[in-house]
Design a protein around this nucleic acid. Structure first.
Lengths: 277, 277
DNA sequence: TCCAAGGTCAATGTATACAAAATTGTCAAC
DNA sequence: GTTGACAATTTTGTATACATTGACCTTGGA
């Protein structure tokens, strides 16, 4: 079984959620987390994302525990957590099953992320963002600009771009100083391919990615500009429009097959448990 | 300790989350749920909402297990769940503590609810809501109209209004046919006093409530009207504006002391764990 | 041959025992 | 008197054994 880590197609094997050096699904043990529960969570997540277990398939506790070389207790705990992250669904009295995601779900998630980011930008603009926060946003954007200066070498710095892009979006949410919004955002981007990084990971090697990324960066600047100027409405709609680029990129990714097709429900949305894998 | 159920001040003792006939925090056993875990979840929730345990206070597993007459296992599971509902915070390696809510958090939650409901309304309008869904929304609104016909007796039907109001908001979210949005909404309204019902429960006996409720009902009609007419932008902004009424009501509730003050963090936002209760 | 009822079995739900970690209290030294 | 380290105790994290529920298969009857 050569299904290894995520995106076996992509040679650079960018990890899915910035987990630094986490082991792969088959073992799930090589990483050095604090608790067994965390190890279980990451391992099961990998199993799902990498497509080792398919959508709709049941996740039996004993089976998982054996596979991960631990007892049922941390596995149970991790499954309960993953339920709230939307990766697994709980069956009434029969444990859990891998959640199914349709392409439509991904589009919805991206659109909602734009909505929340736009709201954060508006609130930051309306309350008057602190100088410190704006400075941080500007610094990140200048760093990203530097990466894109040379169109011939920018692909060598994709990792840096991913980190900076993620930091920008995180700072943007923080700038609203709205813990409830931040919590909701956190929950949303835990869905597969709903976070800013995930989409970059899947998109950067496609043709035309440079133009998309520079256009997105243009919007980044405009958002910060709006916040600084206290133009809340413009900030909000720029945040939403920013998601439109992502949606477009998502569409290209789907057509190109860059997204692990296993994540998509091929037949109906959320097929019945299907006790038999 | 006469701290009993929720809102000891309000004589009619409306239950907090439509739990039909759930027992009270002190026992937590009288209800007949399927599993111990569910019982634990509801019981701990009651302990928090009713103010028996205070914000910032640590929740020790053994202590809770003894109090609820069960083992630590379901208590652990329930605490893990409540973490994702925002009622408790997990301390790194030291278990859990009751989450603190500032008045500002409640306002933020209500505003975000308006944002999501507005988005749902827009999406329903844009995709063209099915006749069946619109019919259901209209039916609920007609039923609510009937309740408010007689200004002298409407308070006898508060329970019915709560149910109908909740159903309207649920139908509104469903009309968008957006599972991701629905999931986010579900998570949001699990916060204390973020759901439509909770606010009605706390507000209906305050002076001027009749006018507020009828004004809200006016907006309900306008939202459905917009959806039917395919006017997405208007639908969205009506959804947001609808939250403004709620925010105003929330302010009055806070000033009147109708909200359990225990839920509010009196000192700083999210005080340090404070190992000593 | 099909349907129904019962039994068997596997998997989840729960309890408890054990291990590891952290906090608290105590004692001694500065 | 304050500060440091060490030990004792409480508390969380994990494993395992048991109970109970639900599913599947077999067997009997129509």
């Amino acid at each position: 079984m050569s299904s290894y880590c995520i995106h076996s197609a992509s040679d650079k094997a960018l990890s899915w959620r910035g987990g630094r050096g986490v082991g792969c699904a088959t073992t799930g043990v090589t990483m050095s987390d604090a608790t067994q529960t965390e190890r279980a969570g990451k391992a099961i997540r990998d199993l799902i994302i990498s497509g080792v277990v398919l959508p709709g398939e049941r996740l039996a506790e004993v089976q998982l525990a054996e596979r991960l070389n631990m007892s049922r207790t941390p596995v149970r705990s991790a499954l309960n957590t993953l339920r709230y992250e939307g990766l697994v669904e709980s069956l009434p009295g029969r444990g859990y099953a891998v959640a199914s995601f349709a392409a439509e779900d991904l589009r919805h998630a991206v659109e909602l992320r734009g909505l929340l980011e736009g709201t954060a930008a508006r609130q930051a603009a309306e309350r008057g963002a602190a100088i410190f926060e704006v400075d941080q946003l500007n610094r990140v954007l200048r760093d990203i600009d530097a990466l894109f200066e040379d169109q011939t070498t920018w692909k060598d710095h994709v990792h840096e771009y991913i980190n900076l892009n993620e930091e920008f979006h995180r700072l943007l949410i923080e700038s609203a100083q709205n813990p409830v919004l931040a919590r909701l955002y956190e929950q949303l981007i835990k869905l597969p391919f709903a976070s800013p990084s995930d989409l970059v990971v899947g998109y950067w090697h496609l043709p035309g990615s440079y133009e998309k990324f520079t256009a997105a960066q243009h919007q980044h600047w405009a958002i910060v500009e709006s916040i600084t100027a206290g133009r809340g409405t413009r900030a909000e709609f720029l945040g939403r429009e920013h998601a439109e680029i992502t949606t477009k990129a998502l569409g290209e990714m789907l057509r190109s097959g860059a997204l692990s097709r296993d994540l998509m429900a091929t037949a109906a949305r959320r097929p019945r448990p299907a006790a038999r894998g």
